[in-house]
Design a protein around this nucleic acid. Structure first.
Length: 317
DNA sequence: ATAGGGTTAG
């Protein structure tokens, strides 16, 4: 509104900033509307809309726009590449990622890839399951900052390579780089999947030693880990002390653990906690439904079915 | 003056 009042609608700085703002807010239609109305979008307009779409998971549209941009005679720069790599990582489109890597490699003459592009490449390869290629890109960079390190660490965590992750974590510190909240999240993530409770506790202590307070993401990892190992009372104790209300997503995680440990009474309680969340989605009811056929009482079957009739019905159908 | 990297859980 202020931009209109100040008659700045045609101003490229204002317009590009609007596109950026709307995509960051998830209002892709608004962003697209503004972009479409521009007479001659510049590279920054294109990059804003491409990165915005990729960030919001509109991967195919991001890729199509990058193609369209090049058809209009604009060359992709590093920022464009990062946005496109993000879309490709989201899609786990390995072959496409390989082609982009080749393109990146040939476009820089002295064979030194931009640090941020390299980080996006490492992330893309990890998401596509190609740890070896991720390591190759990583090793070739003579300057490695903490985000590049973390992108590799996160890749190890996502693929469940706990030993590699702990080694790389030590190596990162040996190179003089400090772990961040994201690094610790990856470490806790891998502990959760490997069932390493004691390691997780000591990681929490180390975190605090670095002056990093565990946030909701770290604590959800701990809750997952406790539930996985059947320590439900501790899991609930952590949940009760969270600064914000748990979402249905963490409840459905616990529900999955209830199933694995065959604890039906708890499942029923968890079910009630989760459906009180206004944001609850159909995925939760699928988890509950899977488990109810195994051991949840008929009474809860009725509750479940009445829920299908309300909030979940449209998305289930 | 506007655009780019790593973030958990079923």
């Amino acid at each position: 509104m202020d931009i209109i009042v100040e008659q700045l609608e045609g101003n490229p700085f204002a317009t590009n900033s609007l596109i950026y703002m709307y995509t960051k807010c998830g209002s892709l239609d608004e962003a697209w509307h503004i972009f479409e109305e521009m007479h001659s979008p510049d590279i920054i307009s294109w990059n804003s809309i491409i990165s915005g779409f990729a960030e919001q998971g509109e991967n195919e549209r991001a890729l199509a726009l990058s193609k369209q941009m090049q058809e209009q005679g604009l060359l992709p720069d590093n920022t464009t590449l990062v946005g496109v790599l993000k879309a490709v990582a989201n899609m786990e489109a390995f072959e496409h990622g390989r082609r982009l890597h080749a393109q990146v490699f040939h476009s820089c003459e002295d064979q030194s890839i931009d640090l941020i592009v390299a980080t996006a490449l490492v992330d893309m390869y990890c998401k596509c399951g190609s740890i070896v290629y991720a390591q190759q890109v990583f090793n070739k960079m003579e300057t490695k900052d903490y985000v590049l390190w973390t992108s590799l660490l996160t890749g190890y965590a996502q693929q469940g390579y706990s030993d590699l992750l702990f080694q790389a974590y030590d190596s990162m510190k040996a190179h003089g780089l400090q772990p961040t909240a994201v690094t610790f999240l990856s470490l806790l993530n891998v502990c959760s999947h490997a069932g390493l409770i004691n390691s997780a506790y000591s990681i929490l202590e180390v975190m605090c030693g670095y002056g990093i307070e565990p946030d909701i993401k770290h604590l959800n990892c701990i809750v997952d880990l406790l539930g996985r190992s059947g320590q439900f009372f501790l899991a609930f104790a952590v949940l009760e002390r969270l600064p914000i209300k748990p979402t249905y997503i963490i409840w459905s995680t616990i529900l999955g653990h209830c199933r694995n440990h065959s604890i039906s009474e708890l499942a029923q309680y968890v079910f009630e906690c989760a459906v009180s969340d206004e944001e609850v989605e159909s995925a939760f009811f699928v988890v509950m439904s899977n488990l109810s056929s195994e051991f949840v009482s008929e009474e809860y079957e009725d509750v479940l079915h009445s829920c299908y009739g309300t909030s979940a019905s449209s998305s289930l159908l």
